[in-house]
Structure formats: structure tokens, C-alpha cells
């Protein structure tokens, strides 16, 4: 069962719009500065439940629901050698947490897990290098792009349940650096990426072939892909635009849905999701299905229906502080909003 559904809704200083419903709060009193928040399906004692994962630079904690509106730390992995930079979501994977570590850029990817054989929590390195982009895909697959002085390597790693790598497949790299990857809903073996040259590239994960490189256009530089959907012969890609700044608001698109025809390489914008009115720019965002969420420079979190291009909810910064993180939980429908202090709010969307 979905852990969030077991929790009693409470509305202390909740969102302004009804589309986000406050579910519960989780407070990490140890946390000096939260760097990421996420969720993972966890199976224990014959049941599978949604657990929350919080990361600071030196520790990653797994939280379990103990009672309505009460979360307890189930375990903490201490990672003191290299700082944690982000949690890498692994959709539909159980009992595995993936994290990226590094100084300014990602230097290694680790899996954090519980081993029932030894009844212990442990972690293992699955990839090292100068990693530029990483994504977790369904069926325990992980794709990374890394760079040496001479060349770029793009690789898919099939993860084992015990935290190792079962198989590796090299993907043909494009000429310019890959900045982000996104799984393609509707075609299991397809993967899209965005590049530093503002192109969308498409791979065949089974063969490693680079199938297509399509330019996004000059109007929206440094586009980052979040999701892709194949439908009716078109490839719909959700892009965010990190340069959406307050100086351009309102009307500056944070997210765009762009339809690409992979056969011709031509594209057209389908829908824009713009900054809500007010002096705030885009800091970072996350997309699940057709819902986008972003932290704004004002410390608020905004949520959009990306197919309608409508901002559907805003979580204001409030007296307790600015929001720093906004992530959709695995399986969608639950938004995790985090503050630097380590406090995380769960909202049902």
C-alpha cells in the first residue's frame, strides 16, 4: 500500500491551492544542510511501502512511516569520503537507493542497499569517472555519460539486486556533451538525451545505436530533458529551461513540451509552462508524467500541468523558510518539498 495514503491529512500552513494536499512532515534534526530528497519502494516483512530518502553531504537516510504523520529514520548510510551530490531515482526498483557523489561534478555512483543474506545495510560503487549526466531507468537500468580529455563515454549498466552490475552496454556518444537523459514512455529500448549543443538525441538501448540528433532551436539554450513519450509516430519531450529568469517574468517558459518527428528531425512546440506572476526565477525542477514542479528563486515551489501549460499550485516560502528541493515521489501523485534544514513535507497531488 502507498504509505502516504495511510497518513492523516493535516493542513497547518498548507498550499494556497487545493490541488496540493498536505499529508505529513518529516524532520531531520541531524541534518546540517539537505542536498536532495527522494523516495524508494521498500519491501520488508512481506509488504512493499513507499519510503522517503533524504541526503546531506555526508549521510543518506531512509525514512519509514511509523504512524500517521510520524516518520522514523530506518537507517542511515554514512558516506564521509566524498560528498553526496544527488539521489538518482530508480523507477519501479525495490530496496535499492542510488546516489551520485563528487566535489563539483559527479565522480562516482553508488548503490545503497540492505542485504538479507548478511542482514546488513551496505553500499557499493557501480561507476566512477568524470560523470556529466546520469539517469535511472525501469528494470534496474542506469545510464551515465562521462568524459575524458579525449572522448565521451555513454554506458548503460544493468544492476543486480545485490548492488553489483550484471551487464554493461556502451551507447554511441554524440559529438557534444550529454547534459541529461530521459526514459521514453511507450518504447522500453529507447532513450533520449539533451546535449550541450542544445540538441535532443535518441538511442536504441539494446543495440547502443545513436539513432537521431535533432536541434532544439536557438530560442531556448541549455535545454534539459526530463521525460519523453512516444505517441502517434511523434516523440514528445518535456524540456526545462534553466535560463528562465525573473527578469523575463511573467511569460518566461520554465517547461516546454516539444513534439519531434524522429523521421524528419523536425519539431514544434506543443505547450509552454511559464513562471507564475511575481519576481521569481527558476532554480531547479522535476517532472513526473505530465506534472512539473520547480523551486523558484523566491523560495516558493510551483507546480504545473504540463499538457495544459497551467500553473496549478504554489507552495509559498512561508515563515519556516524557503523551499530548496521539489521532487515527485516514485509512482507520482506525491510531491516531496524540502528545506535546507532537512524538513520535508509530503503533499498529495
Amino acid at each position: 500500500t502507498d504509505a502516504a495514503e495511510q497518513l492523516t491529512p493535516v493542513l497547518p500552513d498548507g498550499p494556497r491551492e487545493e490541488s496540493l494536499q498536505f499529508v505529513s512532515e518529516l524532520k531531520d534534526s541531524w541534518c546540517a544542510c539537505a542536498v536532495d530528497v527522494g523516495s524508494v519502494w521498500w519491501a520488508a516483512a512481506g509488504r512493499r511501502e513507499l519510503r522517503v530518502v533524504t541526503a546531506s553531504e555526508s549521510a543518506v537516510s531512509l525514512w519509514e512511516p511509523l504512524a500517521p504523520d510520524c516518520w522514523g529514520r530506518a537507517y542511515t548510510w554514512h558516506l564521509t569520503e566524498v560528498p553526496v551530490i544527488q539521489i538518482v531515482p530508480l523507477p519501479d526498483t525495490c530496496n535499492l537507493v542510488c546516489v551520485a557523489l563528487g566535489e563539483l561534478e559527479i565522480g562516482e555512483i553508488r548503490l545503497l542497499l540492505y542485504s538479507s543474506e548478511t542482514d546488513s545495510f551496505k553500499h557499493s560503487v557501480v561507476k566512477t569517472g568524470n560523470i556529466k549526466a546520469v539517469v535511472g531507468l525501469k528494470d534496474r537500468r542506469l545510464v551515465c555519460s562521462s568524459r575524458t580529455m579525449q572522448e565521451q563515454q555513454v554506458e548503460m549498466v544493468l544492476l543486480s539486486e545485490t548492488g553489483g552490475s550484471k551487464n554493461r552496454q556502451t551507447l554511441m556518444p554524440p559529438e557534444d556533451t550529454v547534459t541529461a537523459f530521459a526514459e521514453v514512455e511507450g518504447i522500453r529500448e529507447a532513450l533520449v538525451g539533451t546535449t550541450a549543443g542544445n540538441s535532443v538525441v535518441v538511442w536504441n538501448l539494446k543495440t547502443g545505436q545513436l539513432l537521431r540528433k535533432m536541434h532544439v532551436g536557438y530560442s531556448y539554450p541549455a535545454s534539459i530533458c526530463h521525460r519523453a513519450y512516444s505517441d502517434s509516430g511523434l516523440l514528445f519531450v518535456v524540456l526545462s529551461h534553466p535560463h528562465a529568469k525573473e527578469s523575463e517574468s511573467p511569460g518566461s517558459p520554465v517547461f516546454r513540451v516539444v513534439a519531434f518527428n524522429p523521421r524528419s528531425g523536425r519539431s514544434t512546440g506543443v505547450m509552454f509552462s511559464c513562471l507564475p506572476p511575481g519576481p521569481a526565477g527558476y532554480l531547479e525542477g522535476d517532472v513526473w508524467d505530465t506534472a512539473g514542479a520547480a523551486v523558484l528563486t523566491s523560495g516558493a515551489v510551483a507546480v504545473w500541468d504540463l499538457l495544459r501549460g497551467r500553473c496549478t499550485a504554489v507552495l509559498p516560502a512561508g515563515p519556516a523558510g524557503h523551499w530548496a528541493l521539489a521532487r515527485w515521489a516514485t509512482g507520482g501523485a506525491v510531491l516531496l518539498a524540502g528545506r535546507c534544514s532537512g524538513t520535508v513535507h509530503l503533499y498529495r497531488y
Partner: peptide
């Protein structure tokens, strides 16, 4: 968008591009 904007559309684009792309 119309087909004329985007060129001819193929429902099997993934298989077709995989057959055409270098291995």
C-alpha cells in the same frame, strides 16, 4: 501541429531508424 509542419510521420520510426543507423 500538422503533418506538413513536421514532415511524413511513421508509427514505426524507432524500428526504421534502428534498421538504417550504423551498428
Amino acid at each position: 501541429c500538422s503533418e506538413s509542419d513536421l514532415g511524413p510521420i511513421s508509427l514505426n520510426w524507432f524500428e526504421e531508424l534502428s534498421a538504417e543507423a550504423p551498428p
